[in-house]
Write a protein that binds this DNA or RNA. Structure first.
Lengths: 223, 223
DNA sequence: GCCTGTGAACGTATTCACAGCC
DNA sequence: GGCTGTGAATACGTTCACAGGC
Protein backbone atom coordinates (compact mmCIF):
# COMPACT_ATOMS: atom_id res chain seq x y z
CA UNK A 1 0.00 0.00 0.00
CA UNK A 2 1.78 3.06 -1.28
CA UNK A 3 0.76 6.62 -0.59
CA UNK A 4 -0.45 6.97 -4.15
CA UNK A 5 -2.90 4.10 -3.72
CA UNK A 6 -4.91 6.08 -1.21
CA UNK A 7 -8.10 7.33 -2.79
CA UNK A 8 -9.25 10.92 -2.82
CA UNK A 9 -12.35 9.78 -0.94
CA UNK A 10 -10.23 8.63 1.95
CA UNK A 11 -8.26 11.87 1.96
CA UNK A 12 -11.40 14.00 2.04
CA UNK A 13 -12.64 12.00 5.00
CA UNK A 14 -9.32 12.32 6.82
CA UNK A 15 -9.77 16.08 6.58
CA UNK A 16 -13.23 15.72 8.05
CA UNK A 17 -11.92 13.57 10.90
CA UNK A 18 -9.34 16.25 11.51
CA UNK A 19 -12.09 18.85 11.73
CA UNK A 20 -13.88 16.74 14.34
CA UNK A 21 -10.69 16.10 16.26
CA UNK A 22 -9.93 19.80 16.48
CA UNK A 23 -13.36 20.41 17.96
CA UNK A 24 -12.90 17.56 20.39
CA UNK A 25 -9.54 18.93 21.47
CA UNK A 26 -11.10 22.37 22.03
CA UNK A 27 -13.75 20.70 24.16
CA UNK A 28 -11.07 18.94 26.20
CA UNK A 29 -12.10 15.44 25.14
CA UNK A 30 -9.22 13.00 25.42
CA UNK A 31 -10.52 9.81 23.87
CA UNK A 32 -12.77 9.26 20.87
CA UNK A 33 -14.34 6.16 19.28
CA UNK A 34 -14.75 5.45 15.59
CA UNK A 35 -18.47 5.88 16.11
CA UNK A 36 -18.05 9.41 17.45
CA UNK A 37 -15.73 10.35 14.60
CA UNK A 38 -18.20 8.89 12.14
CA UNK A 39 -21.08 10.87 13.62
CA UNK A 40 -19.00 14.02 13.49
CA UNK A 41 -18.16 13.62 9.84
CA UNK A 42 -21.18 11.97 8.29
CA UNK A 43 -19.82 8.49 7.69
CA UNK A 44 -19.80 5.09 9.40
CA UNK A 45 -17.61 3.67 12.16
CA UNK A 46 -16.36 0.92 9.86
CA UNK A 47 -15.37 3.51 7.30
CA UNK A 48 -13.41 5.47 9.87
CA UNK A 49 -11.53 2.39 11.04
CA UNK A 50 -10.84 1.30 7.46
CA UNK A 51 -9.55 4.72 6.49
CA UNK A 52 -7.22 4.89 9.45
CA UNK A 53 -6.08 1.30 9.00
CA UNK A 54 -4.64 2.24 5.61
CA UNK A 55 -1.97 4.21 7.48
CA UNK A 56 -1.46 2.22 10.63
CA UNK A 57 -3.01 1.15 13.92
CA UNK A 58 -3.62 4.19 16.02
CA UNK A 59 -6.34 3.08 18.43
CA UNK A 60 -6.65 0.85 21.46
CA UNK A 61 -9.08 -2.03 21.26
CA UNK A 62 -11.93 -1.68 23.68
CA UNK A 63 -11.09 1.94 24.23
CA UNK A 64 -10.78 4.16 21.15
CA UNK A 65 -8.30 6.77 19.93
CA UNK A 66 -6.39 9.43 21.86
CA UNK A 67 -7.69 12.71 20.44
CA UNK A 68 -4.44 14.64 20.61
CA UNK A 69 -2.37 11.76 19.28
CA UNK A 70 -4.67 10.94 16.36
CA UNK A 71 -4.92 14.61 15.50
CA UNK A 72 -1.17 14.92 15.21
CA UNK A 73 -0.97 11.69 13.25
CA UNK A 74 -3.54 12.86 10.72
CA UNK A 75 -1.83 16.22 10.36
CA UNK A 76 1.38 14.40 9.67
CA UNK A 77 -0.24 12.07 7.13
CA UNK A 78 -1.85 14.98 5.30
CA UNK A 79 1.39 16.94 5.32
CA UNK A 80 -0.03 19.63 7.57
CA UNK A 81 2.81 19.62 10.07
CA UNK A 82 4.44 22.44 8.14
CA UNK A 83 3.44 25.66 6.46
CA UNK A 84 2.58 25.77 2.75
CA UNK A 85 3.26 28.84 0.68
CA UNK A 86 0.48 29.61 -1.76
CA UNK A 87 0.19 32.03 -4.67
CA UNK A 88 -3.12 33.61 -5.55
CA UNK A 89 -3.73 34.66 -9.14
CA UNK A 90 -6.67 37.00 -9.67
CA UNK A 91 -7.52 39.68 -7.13
CA UNK A 92 -11.17 40.02 -8.05
CA UNK A 93 -14.05 39.37 -5.70
CA UNK A 94 -13.25 35.72 -5.02
CA UNK A 95 -9.53 36.35 -4.78
CA UNK A 96 -9.93 39.13 -2.24
CA UNK A 97 -12.43 37.09 -0.24
CA UNK A 98 -9.77 34.37 -0.02
CA UNK A 99 -7.14 36.87 1.09
CA UNK A 100 -9.45 37.82 3.94
CA UNK A 101 -10.14 34.24 4.92
CA UNK A 102 -8.14 33.83 8.11
CA UNK A 103 -8.62 30.04 8.20
CA UNK A 104 -6.10 29.61 5.38
CA UNK A 105 -3.28 31.01 7.47
CA UNK A 106 -4.57 29.29 10.59
CA UNK A 107 -4.54 25.90 8.86
CA UNK A 108 -1.03 26.35 7.53
CA UNK A 109 -1.63 27.86 4.09
CA UNK A 110 0.13 31.21 3.82
CA UNK A 111 -0.70 33.33 0.80
CA UNK A 112 2.82 34.46 -0.03
CA UNK A 113 1.92 36.46 -3.13
CA UNK A 114 -1.07 37.70 -5.13
CA UNK A 115 -1.20 38.70 -8.80
CA UNK A 116 -3.49 40.51 -11.19
CA UNK A 117 -3.31 42.19 -14.59
CA UNK A 118 -5.54 45.14 -13.72
CA UNK A 119 -3.36 48.27 -13.19
CA UNK A 120 -5.99 49.55 -10.75
CA UNK A 121 -5.41 46.55 -8.52
CA UNK A 122 -1.67 46.21 -8.82
CA UNK A 123 0.02 47.77 -5.82
CA UNK A 124 -3.05 47.62 -3.59
CA UNK A 125 -2.90 45.64 -0.37
CA UNK A 126 -5.54 43.35 1.05
CA UNK A 127 -5.21 41.82 4.48
CA UNK A 128 -1.48 42.26 4.37
CA UNK A 129 -0.86 40.91 0.88
CA UNK A 130 0.17 43.29 -1.90
CA UNK A 131 -1.11 42.59 -5.40
CA UNK A 132 1.69 42.34 -7.96
CA UNK A 133 1.77 42.52 -11.71
CA UNK A 134 1.31 39.16 -13.39
CA UNK A 135 4.67 39.63 -15.12
CA UNK A 136 6.36 39.13 -11.77
CA UNK A 137 4.77 35.72 -11.24
CA UNK A 138 7.63 33.41 -12.18
CA UNK A 139 10.30 35.43 -10.43
CA UNK A 140 8.28 35.91 -7.25
CA UNK A 141 7.18 32.30 -6.97
CA UNK A 142 10.72 31.04 -7.22
CA UNK A 143 12.00 33.61 -4.75
CA UNK A 144 9.21 32.85 -2.28
CA UNK A 145 9.43 29.09 -2.82
CA UNK A 146 5.73 28.79 -3.53
CA UNK A 147 4.48 25.24 -4.10
CA UNK A 148 0.73 25.74 -4.48
CA UNK A 149 -1.37 28.09 -6.58
CA UNK A 150 -4.96 29.27 -6.49
CA UNK A 151 -6.57 30.33 -9.75
CA UNK A 152 -9.23 32.99 -9.21
CA UNK A 153 -9.06 34.59 -12.64
CA UNK A 154 -11.78 34.94 -15.27
CA UNK A 155 -12.32 31.66 -17.14
CA UNK A 156 -10.48 32.86 -20.25
CA UNK A 157 -7.26 33.37 -18.29
CA UNK A 158 -7.39 30.15 -16.29
CA UNK A 159 -5.48 27.80 -18.60
CA UNK A 160 -2.71 30.30 -19.22
CA UNK A 161 -2.44 30.92 -15.49
CA UNK A 162 -2.20 27.21 -14.77
CA UNK A 163 0.53 26.80 -17.36
CA UNK A 164 2.53 29.65 -15.88
CA UNK A 165 2.09 28.40 -12.33
CA UNK A 166 3.40 25.00 -13.36
CA UNK A 167 6.23 26.64 -15.24
CA UNK A 168 7.10 28.50 -12.05
CA UNK A 169 7.40 25.26 -10.10
CA UNK A 170 3.95 24.90 -8.55
CA UNK A 171 2.80 21.26 -8.22
CA UNK A 172 -0.62 21.75 -6.62
CA UNK A 173 -3.38 23.96 -8.00
CA UNK A 174 -6.83 24.89 -6.75
CA UNK A 175 -8.96 26.22 -9.59
CA UNK A 176 -11.97 28.45 -8.96
CA UNK A 177 -12.54 29.27 -12.61
CA UNK A 178 -15.45 27.36 -14.17
CA UNK A 179 -13.46 25.93 -17.04
CA UNK A 180 -11.45 22.80 -17.63
CA UNK A 181 -7.76 23.30 -17.00
CA UNK A 182 -5.05 20.90 -18.13
CA UNK A 183 -1.89 20.28 -16.16
CA UNK A 184 0.93 17.75 -16.51
CA UNK A 185 0.33 14.48 -14.66
CA UNK A 186 2.83 15.29 -11.92
CA UNK A 187 0.74 18.32 -10.92
CA UNK A 188 -2.29 17.85 -8.67
CA UNK A 189 -5.37 19.81 -9.58
CA UNK A 190 -8.60 20.39 -7.70
CA UNK A 191 -11.52 22.53 -8.67
CA UNK A 192 -14.22 24.46 -6.85
CA UNK A 193 -17.26 25.46 -8.88
CA UNK A 194 -20.24 27.05 -7.15
CA UNK A 195 -22.52 26.88 -10.17
CA UNK A 196 -21.81 23.19 -10.56
CA UNK A 197 -22.81 22.61 -6.95
CA UNK A 198 -26.00 24.60 -7.37
CA UNK A 199 -26.81 22.62 -10.51
CA UNK A 200 -26.51 19.48 -8.40
CA UNK A 201 -29.05 20.91 -5.98
CA UNK A 202 -31.25 21.85 -8.92
CA UNK A 203 -31.31 18.25 -10.12
CA UNK A 204 -32.13 16.94 -6.67
CA UNK A 205 -34.95 19.43 -6.28
CA UNK A 206 -36.45 18.69 -9.66
CA UNK A 207 -39.20 16.11 -9.57
CA UNK A 208 -39.29 13.13 -11.89
CA UNK A 209 -42.19 14.56 -13.83
CA UNK A 210 -40.24 17.51 -15.18
CA UNK A 211 -37.28 15.33 -16.06
CA UNK A 212 -37.52 14.34 -19.70
CA UNK A 213 -37.64 11.07 -21.59
CA UNK A 214 -38.34 8.59 -18.87
CA UNK A 215 -41.64 7.19 -17.81
CA UNK A 216 -41.31 5.27 -14.56
CA UNK A 217 -44.22 5.51 -12.15
CA UNK A 218 -44.34 8.18 -9.45
CA UNK A 219 -41.77 8.83 -6.69
CA UNK A 220 -40.85 12.52 -6.62
CA UNK A 221 -37.15 13.25 -6.13
CA UNK A 222 -35.66 14.33 -2.85
CA UNK A 223 -38.23 12.53 -0.74
CA UNK B 1 -34.10 3.51 -13.24
CA UNK B 2 -35.62 6.26 -11.14
CA UNK B 3 -34.27 9.77 -10.88
CA UNK B 4 -33.06 9.01 -7.38
CA UNK B 5 -30.90 6.13 -8.60
CA UNK B 6 -28.67 8.51 -10.54
CA UNK B 7 -25.37 8.97 -8.74
CA UNK B 8 -23.90 12.31 -7.77
CA UNK B 9 -20.92 11.45 -9.95
CA UNK B 10 -23.11 11.32 -13.01
CA UNK B 11 -24.78 14.61 -12.11
CA UNK B 12 -21.44 16.37 -11.67
CA UNK B 13 -20.38 15.13 -15.10
CA UNK B 14 -23.64 16.24 -16.70
CA UNK B 15 -22.82 19.74 -15.46
CA UNK B 16 -19.41 19.47 -17.04
CA UNK B 17 -20.88 18.31 -20.34
CA UNK B 18 -23.20 21.29 -20.15
CA UNK B 19 -20.21 23.57 -19.72
CA UNK B 20 -18.61 22.09 -22.84
CA UNK B 21 -21.84 22.30 -24.80
CA UNK B 22 -22.23 25.98 -23.99
CA UNK B 23 -18.73 26.63 -25.31
CA UNK B 24 -19.47 24.60 -28.41
CA UNK B 25 -22.67 26.53 -29.02
CA UNK B 26 -20.78 29.82 -28.66
CA UNK B 27 -18.29 28.54 -31.20
CA UNK B 28 -21.11 27.68 -33.57
CA UNK B 29 -20.46 23.93 -33.53
CA UNK B 30 -23.55 21.96 -34.41
CA UNK B 31 -22.58 18.35 -33.81
CA UNK B 32 -20.41 16.80 -31.12
CA UNK B 33 -19.17 13.26 -30.45
CA UNK B 34 -18.85 11.54 -27.10
CA UNK B 35 -15.11 11.75 -27.56
CA UNK B 36 -15.16 15.52 -27.89
CA UNK B 37 -17.40 15.86 -24.85
CA UNK B 38 -15.09 13.55 -22.94
CA UNK B 39 -12.03 15.59 -23.88
CA UNK B 40 -13.77 18.77 -22.84
CA UNK B 41 -14.69 17.47 -19.43
CA UNK B 42 -11.86 15.18 -18.43
CA UNK B 43 -13.53 11.81 -18.78
CA UNK B 44 -13.89 9.02 -21.37
CA UNK B 45 -16.21 8.63 -24.35
CA UNK B 46 -17.73 5.48 -22.86
CA UNK B 47 -18.48 7.36 -19.67
CA UNK B 48 -20.21 10.13 -21.57
CA UNK B 49 -22.39 7.68 -23.47
CA UNK B 50 -23.20 5.72 -20.33
CA UNK B 51 -24.15 8.87 -18.42
CA UNK B 52 -26.43 10.07 -21.19
CA UNK B 53 -27.94 6.61 -21.69
CA UNK B 54 -29.29 6.74 -18.14
CA UNK B 55 -31.74 9.37 -19.35
CA UNK B 56 -32.43 8.37 -22.93
CA UNK B 57 -30.97 8.10 -26.42
CA UNK B 58 -30.05 11.52 -27.61
CA UNK B 59 -27.46 10.86 -30.29
CA UNK B 60 -27.37 9.53 -33.81
CA UNK B 61 -25.25 6.47 -34.45
CA UNK B 62 -22.43 7.14 -36.79
CA UNK B 63 -22.85 10.87 -36.31
CA UNK B 64 -22.91 12.21 -32.73
CA UNK B 65 -25.11 14.60 -30.79
CA UNK B 66 -26.76 17.85 -31.88
CA UNK B 67 -25.14 20.48 -29.68
CA UNK B 68 -28.19 22.69 -29.23
CA UNK B 69 -30.54 19.78 -28.70
CA UNK B 70 -28.35 17.97 -26.17
CA UNK B 71 -27.73 21.22 -24.35
CA UNK B 72 -31.44 21.80 -23.91
CA UNK B 73 -31.97 18.19 -22.91
CA UNK B 74 -29.31 18.38 -20.20
CA UNK B 75 -30.69 21.67 -18.92
CA UNK B 76 -34.08 20.04 -18.68
CA UNK B 77 -32.70 16.96 -16.90
CA UNK B 78 -30.84 19.11 -14.38
CA UNK B 79 -33.87 21.30 -13.82
CA UNK B 80 -32.18 24.35 -15.30
CA UNK B 81 -34.99 25.27 -17.67
CA UNK B 82 -36.37 27.60 -15.02
CA UNK B 83 -35.07 30.14 -12.56
CA UNK B 84 -34.24 29.17 -8.98
CA UNK B 85 -34.66 31.61 -6.15
CA UNK B 86 -31.84 31.43 -3.66
CA UNK B 87 -31.36 32.93 -0.21
CA UNK B 88 -27.93 33.91 1.03
CA UNK B 89 -27.26 33.89 4.75
CA UNK B 90 -24.13 35.70 5.86
CA UNK B 91 -22.98 38.88 4.11
CA UNK B 92 -19.34 38.60 5.05
CA UNK B 93 -16.51 38.34 2.56
CA UNK B 94 -17.64 35.11 0.94
CA UNK B 95 -21.27 36.13 0.93
CA UNK B 96 -20.58 39.45 -0.76
CA UNK B 97 -18.26 37.80 -3.29
CA UNK B 98 -21.16 35.51 -4.20
CA UNK B 99 -23.53 38.46 -4.57
CA UNK B 100 -21.10 39.92 -7.08
CA UNK B 101 -20.75 36.67 -8.99
CA UNK B 102 -22.74 37.32 -12.16
CA UNK B 103 -22.63 33.67 -13.24
CA UNK B 104 -25.20 32.75 -10.62
CA UNK B 105 -27.86 34.92 -12.21
CA UNK B 106 -26.69 33.99 -15.67
CA UNK B 107 -27.08 30.29 -14.93
CA UNK B 108 -30.53 30.67 -13.48
CA UNK B 109 -29.84 31.14 -9.78
CA UNK B 110 -31.28 34.44 -8.58
CA UNK B 111 -30.27 35.58 -5.13
CA UNK B 112 -33.68 36.76 -3.99
CA UNK B 113 -32.65 37.76 -0.47
CA UNK B 114 -29.58 38.13 1.75
CA UNK B 115 -29.39 38.10 5.53
CA UNK B 116 -26.97 38.97 8.30
CA UNK B 117 -27.04 39.68 12.01
CA UNK B 118 -24.54 42.55 11.95
CA UNK B 119 -26.41 45.89 12.31
CA UNK B 120 -23.65 47.51 10.27
CA UNK B 121 -24.47 45.30 7.32
CA UNK B 122 -28.25 45.24 7.56
CA UNK B 123 -29.74 47.69 5.11
CA UNK B 124 -26.66 47.88 2.89
CA UNK B 125 -26.94 46.85 -0.74
CA UNK B 126 -24.51 44.79 -2.78
CA UNK B 127 -24.95 44.30 -6.50
CA UNK B 128 -28.63 45.05 -6.19
CA UNK B 129 -29.40 42.86 -3.19
CA UNK B 130 -30.24 44.48 0.14
CA UNK B 131 -29.08 42.74 3.31
CA UNK B 132 -31.94 42.08 5.74
CA UNK B 133 -32.04 41.26 9.42
CA UNK B 134 -31.93 37.53 10.13
CA UNK B 135 -35.23 37.84 11.96
CA UNK B 136 -36.94 38.43 8.63
CA UNK B 137 -35.67 35.14 7.17
CA UNK B 138 -38.74 32.94 7.51
CA UNK B 139 -41.19 35.60 6.41
CA UNK B 140 -39.10 36.73 3.44
CA UNK B 141 -38.35 33.23 2.19
CA UNK B 142 -41.99 32.28 2.15
CA UNK B 143 -42.99 35.53 0.49
CA UNK B 144 -40.26 35.20 -2.14
CA UNK B 145 -40.85 31.47 -2.63
CA UNK B 146 -37.19 30.66 -2.10
CA UNK B 147 -36.26 26.99 -2.51
CA UNK B 148 -32.49 27.03 -2.05
CA UNK B 149 -30.21 28.51 0.56
CA UNK B 150 -26.51 29.33 0.74
CA UNK B 151 -24.85 29.30 4.14
CA UNK B 152 -21.95 31.75 4.29
CA UNK B 153 -22.01 32.39 8.02
CA UNK B 154 -19.30 31.77 10.61
CA UNK B 155 -19.09 28.07 11.53
CA UNK B 156 -20.84 28.56 14.87
CA UNK B 157 -23.98 29.88 13.17
CA UNK B 158 -24.14 27.31 10.36
CA UNK B 159 -26.29 24.63 11.99
CA UNK B 160 -28.81 27.12 13.30
CA UNK B 161 -28.97 28.74 9.86
CA UNK B 162 -29.57 25.39 8.20
CA UNK B 163 -32.35 24.56 10.62
CA UNK B 164 -34.04 27.87 9.98
CA UNK B 165 -33.70 27.58 6.21
CA UNK B 166 -35.33 24.16 6.31
CA UNK B 167 -38.02 25.51 8.61
CA UNK B 168 -38.66 28.23 6.04
CA UNK B 169 -39.24 25.67 3.30
CA UNK B 170 -35.83 25.42 1.67
CA UNK B 171 -35.01 21.92 0.36
CA UNK B 172 -31.55 22.48 -1.08
CA UNK B 173 -28.60 23.97 0.79
CA UNK B 174 -25.06 24.87 -0.21
CA UNK B 175 -22.84 25.18 2.85
CA UNK B 176 -19.64 27.21 2.81
CA UNK B 177 -19.04 26.97 6.54
CA UNK B 178 -16.33 24.45 7.47
CA UNK B 179 -18.50 22.48 9.88
CA UNK B 180 -20.81 19.52 9.63
CA UNK B 181 -24.43 20.52 9.23
CA UNK B 182 -27.37 18.17 9.71
CA UNK B 183 -30.55 18.42 7.70
CA UNK B 184 -33.59 16.14 7.37
CA UNK B 185 -33.28 13.43 4.71
CA UNK B 186 -35.66 15.20 2.32
CA UNK B 187 -33.28 18.17 2.15
CA UNK B 188 -30.27 18.04 -0.19
CA UNK B 189 -27.02 19.38 1.17
CA UNK B 190 -23.73 20.13 -0.54
CA UNK B 191 -20.64 21.66 0.95
CA UNK B 192 -17.74 23.74 -0.33
CA UNK B 193 -14.65 23.86 1.85
CA UNK B 194 -11.52 25.56 0.57
CA UNK B 195 -9.31 24.37 3.42
CA UNK B 196 -10.37 20.79 2.80
CA UNK B 197 -9.38 21.11 -0.85
CA UNK B 198 -6.02 22.60 0.07
CA UNK B 199 -5.46 19.79 2.55
CA UNK B 200 -6.02 17.37 -0.31
CA UNK B 201 -3.31 19.15 -2.28
CA UNK B 202 -1.07 19.05 0.77
CA UNK B 203 -1.39 15.28 0.94
CA UNK B 204 -0.65 14.88 -2.74
CA UNK B 205 2.42 17.10 -2.47
CA UNK B 206 3.78 15.35 0.58
CA UNK B 207 6.28 12.65 -0.26
CA UNK B 208 6.16 9.17 1.17
CA UNK B 209 9.16 9.79 3.35
CA UNK B 210 7.46 12.42 5.47
CA UNK B 211 4.30 10.36 5.75
CA UNK B 212 4.34 8.40 8.98
CA UNK B 213 4.09 4.77 9.94
CA UNK B 214 4.64 3.08 6.63
CA UNK B 215 7.83 1.80 5.16
CA UNK B 216 7.43 0.93 1.50
CA UNK B 217 10.38 1.64 -0.74
CA UNK B 218 10.75 4.95 -2.56
CA UNK B 219 8.28 6.43 -5.04
CA UNK B 220 7.61 10.08 -4.26
CA UNK B 221 3.99 11.19 -4.44
CA UNK B 222 2.44 13.15 -7.27
CA UNK B 223 4.19 11.35 -10.10
C1' DG C 1 -16.81 3.58 -41.92
C1' DC C 2 -18.25 5.92 -38.04
C1' DC C 3 -20.21 6.66 -33.64
C1' DT C 4 -23.97 5.55 -30.41
C1' DG C 5 -26.11 2.59 -26.92
C1' DT C 6 -25.58 -1.05 -23.75
C1' DG C 7 -24.98 -5.64 -21.50
C1' DA C 8 -20.90 -7.89 -19.52
C1' DA C 9 -16.52 -7.64 -17.30
C1' DC C 10 -13.77 -5.33 -14.38
C1' DG C 11 -12.06 -2.47 -10.73
C1' DT C 12 -12.80 0.28 -6.72
C1' DA C 13 -15.20 1.75 -2.49
C1' DT C 14 -18.09 0.54 1.27
C1' DT C 15 -20.09 -2.47 4.57
C1' DC C 16 -20.20 -6.71 7.21
C1' DA C 17 -18.89 -9.53 10.73
C1' DC C 18 -15.83 -11.32 13.76
C1' DA C 19 -11.24 -12.38 15.86
C1' DG C 20 -8.16 -10.01 18.96
C1' DC C 21 -7.15 -7.22 22.73
C1' DC C 22 -7.95 -3.81 26.39
C1' DG D 1 -18.22 -5.72 27.60
C1' DG D 2 -16.44 -2.58 24.44
C1' DC D 3 -14.06 -1.09 20.54
C1' DT D 4 -10.34 -1.72 17.15
C1' DG D 5 -8.40 -3.85 12.97
C1' DT D 6 -9.25 -6.43 8.94
C1' DG D 7 -10.33 -10.23 5.50
C1' DA D 8 -14.54 -11.40 3.10
C1' DA D 9 -18.70 -10.03 0.99
C1' DT D 10 -21.26 -6.73 -1.21
C1' DA D 11 -22.47 -2.62 -3.71
C1' DC D 12 -21.20 0.72 -6.85
C1' DG D 13 -18.85 3.05 -10.66
C1' DT D 14 -16.10 2.60 -14.80
C1' DT D 15 -14.40 0.45 -18.85
C1' DC D 16 -14.72 -2.90 -22.52
C1' DA D 17 -16.29 -4.51 -26.62
C1' DC D 18 -19.52 -5.12 -29.87
C1' DA D 19 -24.23 -5.12 -32.02
C1' DG D 20 -27.09 -1.66 -34.27
C1' DG D 21 -28.13 2.09 -37.18
C1' DC D 22 -26.68 6.32 -39.86
Amino acid sequence: MSRRDISEFTIRRLSLYLRSLRELREAGTEVVSSRQLADGSGTTPAQVRKDLSLFGSFGKRGRGYQVRELLETLESILGLDRQWRVALVGAGKIGRALLGYADLERRGFRVAAAFDTDPEKIGTSHYGVTVRALEELEETLRAEQVEMGIIATPPAAAQDTATRLVEAGVTGILNFAPVKVDVPPEVTLRGVDVVLELEGLSFALTSDVAGGSRREPGSAAGG
